[in-house]
């Protein structure tokens, strides 16, 4: 593969990490969302995720893994029939590490679990998501910082964190906490932040708490939870199925387009919007909606038929009792 083809391949891979469009669209309509329904558009591609929705009530479990025999609500899965038939999967993932000290006023608004590790973001409340606002990011990444240490152009940038080799970057501190495990603290838009960054980094401790993946497809544990407030959040995952890619989103605020059509999906009255490529929204429970659409490369595509999106929705697994006790905390 020549250099130019490798560049194209690498950039396409990076593009696949793009976040879902729902939260951005929600923010555009936020002041009017109670009077005018939001418009969630997911450009469509070809995979269907099955969403199993349990008709059970849900509560908000703690972040700790439940002991055996606990009364914690089961992971809720949606099947293609009105009554759940699937076996709940309830994938649990560990937080692995977490900072135990944060600057005053920073609260957590976003969590992402990628194939290569975690990324968590704290901002000052109420959340200001503009790029100029102060933001703290903590990342856990599989890999090593060997080459970064070698290329550190100033000795002052090399350091240790609790004895582990590390290096200062422009806005943060990155260190090798264990073999093939790198931790990173970044603090953006805060002047003279190096001291604060070091204090945060030195406060990081192993965190064995486990949480349930809020939305999943095909056993994947990739997800992102982001929020505009504690009652307006979205949990999403990307779906690769057959020859196409989709986005599945569990969200707390109804997103209804400008010209929705009522359809039946998975035994429920749902909403289908053709504009923008097609999106299917299925109400699962009070303040719980599942939206499925495709990931495309450009807008104004032919809408994906509702039947295809229903197939996709039938394969997605969601946790209606998703633990969001960390939001805004």
């Amino acid at each position: 593969m020549n250099t130019e083809d490798l560049i194209r391949d690498a950039l396409r891979r990076q593009a696949d990490l793009a976040p879902p469009p729902g939260p951005v669209l929600a923010a555009l309509h936020r002041p009017r969302r109670r009077r005018k329904p939001l418009y969630l558009v997911l450009a469509t591609a070809g995979t269907a995720a099955v969403v199993a929705i349990a008709a059970t009530t849900f509560s908000r479990p703690t972040a700790d893994a439940p002991p055996a025999g606990s009364n914690r609500p089961p992971f809720s899965t949606v099947t293609g029939s009105p009554s759940p038939t699937g076996v709940p999967s309830g994938k649990l993932v560990s937080l692995e590490y977490a900072p135990t000290w944060l600057p005053d006023g920073f609260v957590e608004w976003r969590r992402s679990l990628f194939d290569h590790g975690w990324q968590r973001t704290w901002r000052q409340a109420p959340p200001d998501h503009s790029p100029s606002a102060p933001a703290l990011t903590f990342e856990i990444t599989r890999g090593s910082i060997g080459s970064l240490l070698e290329s550190a152009d100033e000795p002052a940038n090399r350091t240790t964190v609790n004895g582990a080799p590390g290096v200062y970057t422009d806005d943060g501190l990155r260190w090798q906490v264990a073999d093939k495990l790198v931790l990173t603290v970044n603090l953006d838009n805060v002047p003279d932040a190096r001291g604060t960054i070091r204090r945060i980094a030195e406060s990081v401790r192993p965190d064995r708490r486990q949480i349930r993946v809020p939305v999943s497809f095909g056993g994947s544990t990739r997800f992102t939870v982001s929020a505009n407030s504690r009652d307006d959040w979205t949990a999403s995952t990307d779906v690769s199925y057959r020859d196409g890619r989709y986005m599945a989103m569990l969200h707390s605020v109804a997103h209804v387009g400008s010209s929705p059509r009522t359809v039946t999906a998975l035994g429920r009255e749902a909403s289908y919007e053709e504009a923008g490529g097609g999106v299917l929204t299925i109400p699962l429970a009070p303040d719980r909606f599942l939206s499925v659409g495709g990931l495309g490369l450009s807008g104004f595509q032919q809408p994906v038929p509702v039947e295809t999106l229903t197939e996709v929705a039938a394969l997605v697994e969601v946790d209606l009792g998703v633990d969001l006790s960390w939001l805004g905390v």
Binding site: P21, L28, V41, A275, G276, F300
Partner: peptide, 12 residues
């Protein structure tokens, strides 16, 4: 609204 719906994904 229609513009944003169609452009948001490629922009992201």
């Amino acid at each position: 609204e229609d513009f944003a719906a169609g452009q948001v994904t490629p922009l992201l």
